[in-house]
């Protein structure tokens, strides 16, 4: 149900935050993480690592996208679309929690 929300027109009003039980570290400019929930290791990459930093505290997706668009050379629409796709991937792996605003 929440994932469906991430694909709706109101997705940028939702709040995302890291889920508990993940250990992350920087490796060659990319963020590598271990999830105690899934028992898997993940590479979030450089931009994914920045997203991970930004969701240390609850943040609404619109503000998250605004911050990314101000820091990176990218059109806001593309930034939002690709950031949402990444958040969906993380949600499916139980790496984040999504809450209504």
């Amino acid at each position: 149900m929440i994932e469906a929300g991430l694909t709706s027109g109101h997705d940028t009003e939702q709040i995302v935050v890291r889920a508990e039980g993940n250990m992350a570290s920087d490796m060659n400019g990319e963020k590598v993480m271990f999830s105690t929930r899934t028992g898997k290791y993940y590479n979030l990459g450089a931009v994914g690592g920045r997203i991970w930093d930004l969701i240390a505290e609850p943040i609404d997706i619109g503000r998250l996208v605004d911050t990314l668009a101000s820091e990176y050379e990218v059109e806001r629409e593309m930034c939002e679309r690709e950031a949402l796709a990444f958040l969906r991937q993380m949600y499916r792996e139980s790496l984040i929690e999504v809450r209504p605003s």
Binding site: Y42, A46, I51, S70, E73, F86, L95
Partner: peptide, 22 residues
């Protein structure tokens, strides 16, 4: 301040041997 280059964020699942030993 110059903006950084955007790369599509992807969640890559690693296997342990890749993570620990290259």
């Amino acid at each position: 301040m110059a903006k950084q280059q955007w790369q599509t964020p992807e969640l890559e699942t690693l296997n342990v041997s890749e993570t620990m030993y290259g």
